[in-house]
């Protein structure tokens, strides 16, 4: 049972972080389909930091640095989306899809190159961070508390405050609803959208490092992040683009994902003898059903996905 709670919380952290990332981009008016790739790039940034600096830094500094570098890597990567979709008015769906493929191919090439340079016989895309992973965990009895859970909570509250209680957030949301109207009262739509996409990348990148450290002490980067970026988009839609609801949706989806890891330790579930792929499918099936019922009255930002054109005023 403790294991289920632990997995639920850590997977929920990933989903909430990445879904909030998607939420920031969409509130500013840009659809970020490239979250899957963003997660992977952020994860690589964090994993490389741990590979080189684990022994050289005190625990607190290491944790802080891993978080910051993952966020920076994600934000930097998303600037590719920002340039294309905001400044050059490219089709956001194509660019997002390209970023997912570029993420997995680019990260594999980089990690393999680093591994091969360090040891000519090593042609794998694995980074090991087992020693550093321990530092992120605090044992409370059977329960392994991860500092990432706390960070997620802080960033969740921060997202709520930024979006609804600050001038910056409200202005950004105006750019996602009606950019022409926002521009007419003197808001720089391009800047606001850039900000939305960069914050999105930072949240997504952090989500990536949390994901790969959730249950493993090393990661094979050519495997990607197993669709978590896409699942987070479902969490975001299920949460109707509102941080507090995204948190609940994230917990629910996290629970289903955790079940696929630990269902065999529950007698009644083990007895039902459902093959494990079914548990993997469940979150996606549920989100499809939920989407079918909720999409008619969608709260999506009105102007998302449409490049801002000054001449349309």
């Amino acid at each position: 049972m403790t294991l289920l709670v632990q997995y639920t919380l850590i997977f929920a952290s990933v989903l909430i972080l990445v879904a909030l990332g998607g939420c920031f981009a969409e509130h500013s008016g840009v659809i970020n389909l490239g979250l899957e790739g963003t997660m992977l790039v952020g994860a690589m940034g964090g994993a490389l930091t741990m590979r080189y600096l684990t022994d050289k830094l005190p625990t607190f500094a290491l944790i802080l640095l891993v978080i910051l570098i993952s966020m920076a890597a994600g934000a930097l990567y998303c600037s590719l989306l920002a340039v294309a979709s905001i400044n050059l008015k490219a089709d956001q769906t194509i660019v997002g899809t390209a970023l997912n493929m570029l993420g997995i191919a680019g990260v594999t090439v980089v990690v393999k190159a680093i591994n091969t340079a360090a040891n000519p016989d090593d042609v794998s895309s694995v980074i090991n961070y087992g020693a550093a992973r321990e530092k992120f965990l605090v044992k409370l009895g059977d329960f392994e508390f991860s500092w990432f859970m706390l960070v997620t909570l802080i960033l969740l509250v921060a997202a709520y405050v930024i979006l609804y209680k600050t001038r910056f957030g409200l202005r950004m949301m105006a750019c996602g609803e009606h950019p022409q109207a926002a521009a007419s009262v003197g808001i720089n739509v391009f800047k606001m959208r850039w900000a939305g996409v960069l914050i999105s990348g930072a949240y997504g990148g952090l989500g990536g490092i949390v994901f790969i450290m959730a249950g493993a002490s090393e990661w094979r980067f050519e495997y990607g992040v197993a669709g978590f970026g896409f699942l987070s988009l479902a969490v975001m839609i299920f949460g109707q683009w509102k941080p507090q609801r995204i948190a609940l949706a994230g917990l629910l989806f996290g629970l289903f994902r955790a079940l696929s890891n630990v269902y065999s330790s529950f007698d009644f579930l083990a007895k039902m003898d459902i093959p494990s792929p079914v548990y993997n499918m469940l979150p996606y099936i549920i989100s499809l059903i939920v989407l079918a019922f909720t999409s008619k009255s969608s709260q999506a930002p009105k102007a998302e996905g449409i490049p801002y054109d000054k001449g349309m005023r």
Partner: peptide, 16 residues
Amino acid sequence: QISDLISSIIIYLCGF
């Protein structure tokens, strides 16, 4: 994977 990298860059550029 260098070829995957090249083809994904090509798609990214196709957006333009």
